[in-house]
Every structure is written in structure tokens, then in C-alpha cells.
Nucleic acid binder design. Structure first.
Length: 117
DNA sequence: TGATTGACTATGA
DNA sequence: TTCATAGCCAATC
């Protein structure tokens, strides 16, 4: 396993950043990956989310793809769980897409000054 | 060890 | 906006 504390840190950082997402806001896999210094590893963020199933603290529902589509909903308990969680936080969802995604988008690169690396 | 996979993204049509 | 394709990189098998 190791080979890389870096890799492990990557996952941990993903969880850390995701937990920082304010309620009622959303971000993207790419934004998180970029913030972690690996803009090309957006898929790894998704992979981390997949592993985050065990971690109840990770609000994976606040992470969508760059179009604002809830592509990860199928990985939740039900395909409506993700949408419902977001709506409960005040995020409107229509046709699996975040309404006014551009406004609700929370970019860690812009909002956070802390450097985790 | 090597090939496949995936909650993605950028680009071009 | 949507569709298809290519590139990405770590985890899985």
C-alpha cells in the first residue's frame, strides 16, 4: 500500500475538501482534483467517492460533474437519495441537473485559501 | 504483472 | 446542448 502516502493523502484530502462544501452548495470532481494539485485525476475523485460509502461524513451528494448532473446518484442507496439530499439543502434539481449550477457552484480553489498540499 | 475499469473532463462536430 | 472520442491515473481483478 504504499507506495504512496501521496495516494492515501489524495483520498483523505478529497474527503476533507468534500466535507468543507457548504450546505446548499455543490462542486465538481474536477474542481476538487484541481485543488488537490491533480487536475487530470478527476476520475480518482470519483473513485474516492466510491470508497467514501463507508464514511458517513462525506457529503458525496454535493459533488457533481462539471455540467451539474448528478452522475453519481446510482451509487447511492436509491437514485433519488442524492437528489433528495440536495433538495433538502435548498438545491433544486431538475432532470438530474442542479438548477443554476453556476451560482451554486462552490470552487475550493476560489473559496479556500488554505493549501492542503 | 498487465489489462480493465471508472461518481471525469476537454475538445471537436 | 448533446454526442462521440481521446486522455488521464490509481485501484481492481
Amino acid at each position: 500500500m504504499n507506495y504512496s502516502l501521496k495516494t492515501l493523502n489524495f483520498f483523505d484530502k478529497v474527503y476533507y475538501v468534500v466535507r468543507l462544501i457548504p450546505k446548499g452548495r455543490v462542486t465538481t470532481y474536477g474542481a476538487i482534483a484541481t485543488y488537490l494539485g491533480a487536475p487530470k485525476s478527476s476520475r480518482m475523485v470519483g473513485w474516492a467517492m466510491n470508497a467514501s460509502h463507508k464514511l458517513l461524513d462525506v457529503p458525496a451528494h454535493r459533488v457533481v460533474n462539471r455540467k451539474g448532473i448528478l452522475t453519481g446518484k446510482f451509487h447511492f442507496e436509491s437514485v433519488f437519495a442524492m437528489q433528495h439530499l440536495l433538495e433538502d439543502e435548498g438545491v433544486a434539481i431538475i432532470d438530474d441537473k442542479v438548477v443554476q449550477f453556476n451560482m451554486l457552484f462552490w470552487d475550493p480553489n476560489m473559496e479556500l485559501d488554505t493549501v492542503l498540499l
